[in-house]
Design a protein around this nucleic acid. Structure first.
Lengths: 335, 335
DNA sequence: CTGAAAGCGCTTACAG
DNA sequence: CTGAAAGCGCTTACAG
């Protein structure tokens, strides 16, 4: 396919009238090279479009320069956004980033990740899907594995996507608006974000002394949310539903509409994620906007810092922000 | 980080009592090796957990074994699903697949892809975002570039995601149900899928002799769709809106609700993509289900076949299927 | 500040 | 059917 073989560092050396070692020193910035020589080499390299052969470099340095990002098979829009952010950081840091998707149960996924880590092809691994803590250790002889969303009790979770503290703002504002009866529709237990939202909900209703009709759901799917609302006793109105994401919230809206309940009069709903459709449902969804791309960037920064033994970078601006819309009626942000 | 260096083919050879070449022949399946020797080598390799060093192999064979998939920065759920499908095929075919996201205008993206192709790091490139035809040529000295969604007049488009023929089924069924006034809300012109849907719509209304109120939209966003419906003259009812995807369709639903039009009485809407929320909007959305994962698999199969000079595999089962829901009222599938 | 030489782990003609 | 040897393109002590 390639007519002429691509230029090598030897070609550059010959053209610049120096040795191959000098070319290498210039390009890696390691030796101390006189500005004049440096200039000549750079120009020669540019003129013939030289690009280092990464395979050769990696073989010699015994560093692959490659990072893996593990995604789930159940495609989620925010995984994609995190990938975009992570890949920016990886490339800027001189790594090539590969994505690998894993399927099956938590157990299956954990094994795949351990396999990948043991394979030694990658200098580091960032997983966007939950895996068991055993995959996250960075024992010798394996690529370090870091999780963006994981069992955070292991202290291995990167990023603050799982931060559920804004949920308290929802509950407080709704209590302020007069609501006394709440319900939570949660996501899968294996997601630390889902667990955090559930825990924050429970702590909140407890602390504020309002009634909780329970915690339903357990999947990132609309149907259980719809069912939960349909199963509510008629005299329960008004109910405030705190859903773990926007898809669940849409299911709740649908359930309310099917039984003739008005939103926000009989039922108010909050979502999470600020999905594109949420501003256009009837009524539109109050939700939490998450900057997944920034989260992906930060997660990758943490991995790269760990790899290089550098100080982990501080979290930049806030990743989360509440978007108040129609589904919560007049409930307003508390100042 | 690595305590003991990973085993090499020489270690395997020593352990199995054969030469390194024999190990290579067994593993690549190229030479002719006696079953007994083969067995011994395989066992030795397994016992010490040998994995070939891909960098070394790639340097020797001058094949990188790597494929790139280009995605957009504006993260879309279906890109993710296509990636999953493509990565399955790539891995099964012995390639490592990397994703690289590109930003900016069509022109920017095209340049990035050409750069990537010229870099020679990849044996092949599959782009999920539209690029100009000049990026798609497979001239010598460059990695071949194939597009999953592209300017298909160039005959370089892989997959049938852009097939808009089901749109005709929508229009015919709605005409059957009594509709005479149509409107199309389209996607961005640079997407062949958007162009195909638009063209099919225009051909349809022309051929069936029904009135078209025009083609609006032009982005994958809900707001223009909402505006288009709000701008409709009151006496236009009933109107049949053919939206280029579900997000646009939700915008149309919202517009109708805001002006007090009933769906499906005053307005009917069809979407495209079968997004998860579409079954739970009020009313739920009639749409086209697309198997993005299968599309990703097929696109990658085409790339791999092209790389190996093999016959391109035939398209498997149909990628598209209409899902009739409430937003089209009683309009039924013809037959 | 620069060059000659070794070697990373593999594959592949070539000889036997 | 199997082995000894060369070489892919780079980086890095080492010597000058």
């Amino acid at each position: 396919m390639n007519a002429a073989p691509p230029p090598t560092s030897r070609d550059v050396a010959r053209l610049a009238g120096v040795s191959q070692a000098t070319v290498s020193y210039v390009l890696t910035g390691k030796g101390s090279i006189s500005p004049a020589t440096r200039e000549r080499v750079l120009e020669a390299a540019g003129s013939i479009g030289y690009r280092p052969n990464l395979a050769a470099r990696s073989m010699r340095t015994r560093r692959s320069g490659r990072l893996a990002v593990i995604t789930g098979v159940s495609a989620a829009d925010h995984q994609m956004r995190m990938i975009v952010g992570a890949s920016q950081v990886a490339n800027d840091s001189g790594y090539v980033m590969e994505t690998s998707s894993v399927d099956g149960t938590v157990k299956d996924r954990t094994e795949r990740v351990i396999d990948l880590a043991a394979g030694g092809q990658y200098e580091g691994i960032l997983t966007l899907v939950p895996v068991l803590p055993e995959a996250l250790s960075d024992v010798d002889g394996r690529s370090p594995v870091m999780a963006a969303t994981a069992f955070d009790e292991q202290m291995h979770s990167a990023g603050e996507l799982a931060d559920a503290s804004l949920l308290e703002v929802f509950v407080r504002a709704l209590v302020e608006a007069g609501h006394r009866r709440f319900m939570h529709i949660g996501g899968p237990e294996e997601y630390s974000s889902a667990r955090a939202r559930r825990a924050t909900y429970l702590a909140c209703v407890e602390q504020l002394g309002v009634e909780s009709l329970g915690v339903l759901g357990g999947e990132w799917a609309a149907e259980p949310a719809r069912q939960a609302v349909l199963a509510l006793p008629d005299h329960a109105r008004p109910v405030a539903v705190i859903a773990a994401n926007d898809l669940l919230a849409v299911g709740a809206l649908r359930g309310a509409a099917e039984r003739g309940w008005s939103v926000p009069d009989d039922l108010v709903v909050t979502g999470w994620d600020n999905s594109a459709f949420g501003a256009y449902t009837m009524p539109s969804l109050t939700t939490v906007d998450l900057d997944f791309q920034a989260a992906g960037r930060h997660a990758m920064q943490l991995l790269v810092a760990a790899l290089r033994g550098e100080e982990p970078p501080a979290r930049g601006s806030a990743l989360q922000r509440i978007v108040w819309r129609e589904s919560t009626g007049g409930a307003a942000p508390p100042a």
